[in-house]
Design a protein around this nucleic acid. Structure first.
Ligand code: NAD
Ligand code: NAD
Lengths: 214, 214
DNA sequence: GCCAGGTTGTGAATTTTTTCACAAACTTAC
DNA sequence: GTAAGTTTGTGAAAAAATTCACAACCTGGC
């Protein structure tokens, strides 16, 4: 199987968005979609859509656009979602962790939570959304034992680096971090941060009347 | 007061990260920080740090670096966080909405939730984290009446566009959207999306062995 | 006052990402 | 079969973002 070319980071994100949009279009009964339509729905340019897809092959038909069913098979393949479930560990079953755990959308997209950890003895043993919360002490061993590949960190900032270390020790190769700290991890581990305060602050920047740009 | 220059979108995000990091450094007793240190902590380059800051003025001292207390006053000013609280409406008090509502971090960063809406009669009237959940029917009027500037959408995807419309009608000028749909809003409204499935899928892309790049 | 060491701010160069623009390809209608 | 109308895929151009690299500057020691 061919090695994929270098696509911009933002391009990978857009592939996911195309996939989401394709499902919606299919639900509406459409069978083909043009780059222009897709672009309009996602506020991009049609050239961008075509370029993103062209990194991976030629999937369109001149004069018709892209066959939705075809793209819906191809994009998951590109994203590494085809015919598999990624095994995920969630660390921290507090407010945010519980919301993530209850969310059914992840499974539909190919991610299944195989372990939930907390260090609070009052939470350990509880069953949340069908998952038993486990003692964080054995995190690394459990993660390794269950062949978990992705970790989600939803613990307070002070604990996040230590949790990250344990996840890495357990062998995960990717981490989604919700704690507002910058984590250090070895280069073979892909880190991704979601910081909601940062998102709001960015809105603030654009709101504040001084920055009337855009 | 001078109009700010055009800084890359990612640069705005980094300003928030600098601010976060500065608080940490201050907590450790530091009083100056160099661009190289800041860069190391956030896995950026020192040139990038200097460039980002230089868009807004000259805040450093050759040979010493940046005075932490000074930067901690200046960055909030740039981000529009100085001496004010942004008034926020949260729509949807389900799993995710409740987690957001309970989060104390937003207030510390200058965002205060002034209204919470839900359309489920069983949820309306409940008090979550000190906030009474209100009937979503009057959303636009309430938002306008309380002079709310930012909306957070935490409702199911199918309801998100309608909620967006109402928020806009109520006069918000920025929206943080958690629903996995692409929203349409007038150009004066700044939209920002957080799609956690997209984040996971991006991790999947980098994990999947076909993409050994990076 | 001078020197050694360290760091900024920023033009210029480079790299990355996006957009333009059009030949080639396909579709539909007649 | 042909013509009119679409839309792709992609070189080439443009724009945007990042990095290089260094003069200028500041500090602290002596
Ligand atoms: N709740 C939100 O909406 C929100 C918003 C933005 C950011 N965040 C961030 O997400 C993270 C979690 O937030 P939350 O609101 O769920 O906090 P929370 O306090 O409700 O939950 C944190 C959970 O982590 C557990 N924990 C602490 N240390 C641990 C460890 N070493 N190992 C395992 N578990 C441990 C705690 O027992 C608790 O159950 C925090 O870093 C927070 O800053 C949350
Ligand atoms: N929970 C998560 O971890 C998670 C993760 C990723 C994405 N999301 C997205 O975030 C959104 C919320 O997720 P959730 O898990 O909290 O869902 P949820 O079903 O727990 O909560 C949704 C809430 O919105 C309310 N609601 C529905 N229509 C409404 C309307 N028109 N006006 C006002 N309120 C309305 C419902 O009554 C409910 O209380 C969804 O779009 C979901 O896809 C959630």
């Amino acid at each position: 199987m061919p090695r994929h070319p270098r696509i911009p980071d933002a391009g990978v994100t857009r592939l996911s968005l195309y996939l989401r949009e394709l499902s919606r279009l299919e639900g509406e009964g459409a069978s083909f979609v043009s780059s222009a339509e897709l672009a309009r729905a996602l506020t991009l340019t049609s050239a961008q859509v075509r370029r993103d897809l062209s990194y991976f092959g030629q999937f369109g038909t001149s004069g018709r656009g892209y066959e939705i069913r075809r793209l819906k098979r191809i994009i998951p393949r590109i994203l590494g979602l085809e015919g598999r479930m990624w095994r995920v560990a969630l660390v921290g079953s507090g407010n945010l962790g519980s919301a993530l755990l209850a969310y059914r959308g992840f499974r539909e997209r190919g991610f299944v939570i195989k372990a939930v950890f907390d260090k609070d003895p009052r939470k350990v043993g509880r069953v949340v959304a069908g998952q038993r919360v486990e003692e964080a002490g054995w995190l690394a061993d459990v993660v390794r034992g269950r062949r978990i590949q992705i970790g989600i960190i939803a613990v307070p900032a002070v604990a996040a680096q230590e949790v990250c270390r344990r996840l890495v020790r357990g062998g995960v190769r990717a981490i989604l971090n919700f704690a507002p700290v910058s984590l250090a991890a070895p280069p073979h581990v892909k880190l991704r941060n979601v910081d909601l305060s940062v998102e709001l602050e960015s809105l603030s920047y654009y709101l504040s009347s001084l920055n009337a740009n855009r």
